[in-house]
Amino acid sequence: MVQGSTDAADEKARPEVAVEIAGLNKWFGEFHVLRDINLNVARGERIVICGPSGSGKSTLLRCINHLEDWQTGRIVVDGIELNDDPRQIVAVRRDVGMVFQHFNLFPHLTVLENCTLAPIWVRQMPKRDAEAVAMKYLERVRIPEQAEKYPARLSGGQQQRVAIARALCMNPNIMLFDEPTSALDPEMVKEVLDTMVGLASDGITMLVVSHEMGFARQVADRVMFMADGQILEINEPKAFFAHPQHERTRLFLQQILH
């Protein structure tokens, strides 16, 4: 279930719960954007989070690697409690990969340099090793031939696959996807989703904010519905889509499935 490249001793030490969120509350100014969020994500679990825009799902995801600060509650990632200590934050971020809606590739670096930047400067890897790892993952997302190009030359779908490869190069235990396909042209959505399905079969822990319900049905262990900053419903995909319990969930599913 767990990724092959980490060694066995490490594996035992790691707790069964990958992400633990308890009593999380966040305000943007006076606006209560996350309300009493409690969530445990098991190791290797894949959760798809959906909900109307402004429901706080992206903010929740961005709290997990501390791109956003919060006011009350605690988040523990891989046994490391997140607080204001920059060392703890960096330790968590090394372990958590993130893929953004707008890719956020570094335009002044080639695809290969995008992928090797963090391994070289954060993991202190020799350049040659970092490049080998990068090429491995670029092959994995099926664009090794673009390695020397600059991101601006790539299509949206290719850029998003590079972004996934870039995150994977850090060998993360947990991957966060923040609406990875919603900025893409329709014909490019599939190539990115296929890549993500491939990842899912590796057993990596995934939290995905997405409205791709086909993807949710195919790979999710649980589907979570958020609205107005609260978690309204969590269920296994089959039950979630067949018998949504909460009225808001039903309404939402009706709207996006048609």
Partner: peptide, 20 residues
């Protein structure tokens, strides 16, 4: 987004400034 992407990869803020 550039700063966020660099930070999400675990780069410290001085390194983020310098390289990104």
């Amino acid at each position: 987004g550039q700063t966020e992407a660099a930070q999400a990869l675990g780069l410290r803020s001085t390194t983020t400034l310098r390289l990104v």
